[in-house]
């Protein structure tokens, strides 16, 4: 009996290795896609409560979303150049009456304040996510990304990358559809 256990231990490395191979193989077979759509679309927002991302601004929690009206959730960072590029489009959306909140990723309050001063502030609330934990929970793989969240707090739409002028109608339509 004891001998048999010893024998099994000798095969353990091989078994472990084969498990790794199986993992690698699935990783290789799957087609490479640069865009990583969130698995969270159609699901409620993850629970979170983030401190304010800049001085003089309200922080953001998941409870702020289930208030009956659709809102945009913009994931951005002051250190991200495409985020600056999408600022005019966000302002345009805010002027069209869309309520926008934001999560600042791995950022510092003073940097965020500088960013808002320079590029405008279309946001009602900004939460600071210094460890990217909410970002990961949201299924967001980079900055900027923008989510449409409906009045019940369900994620309805995900826009990956900066919002270009030609993307604005699609975002507006998604917001309308989420009512």
């Amino acid at each position: 009996m004891k001998l048999r256990t010893v024998r099994l231990v000798l095969w353990a490395p091989l078994i472990l290795f084969l498990i790794f191979v199986a993992t690698f193989a699935t990783g290789l077979i799957k087609p490479e896609s640069k865009i990583i759509p969130s698995k969270m679309v159609g699901k409620p927002l993850p629970q979170f409560a983030l401190p304010p991302g800049a001085p003089g601004i309200t922080g953001l929690s998941s409870a702020d979303f289930a208030q009956g009206e659709p809102r945009l959730l913009n994931v951005f960072a002051s250190w991200c150049v495409p985020c600056a590029a999408e600022a005019p489009q966000l302002t345009q959306l805010a002027e069209a009456g869309v309520k926008i909140d934001a999560i600042a990723i791995r950022d510092r309050p003073e940097d965020v304040a500088g960013f808002l001063q320079r590029w405008g502030n279309p946001y009602q609330r900004i939460g600071s996510d210094t460890q990217s934990s909410v970002q990961i929970a949201m299924g967001s793989a980079g900055v900027p990304e923008t989510f449409v969240v409906d009045g019940k707090g369900i994620i309805r739409h995900q826009h990956i990358g900066e919002i270009r002028p030609e993307d604005v109608p699609a975002i507006l339509a998604a917001v309308k559809g989420a009512r």
């Binding site: 000798l10 095969w11 091989l14 290795f17």
Partner: peptide, 14 residues
């Protein structure tokens, strides 16, 4: 190579 060596290990090291 790794699989082969580990198999040889399992067979022989006993």
């Amino acid at each position: 190579y790794i699989g082969g060596a580990l198999t040889l290990f399992g067979l022989r090291v006993g």
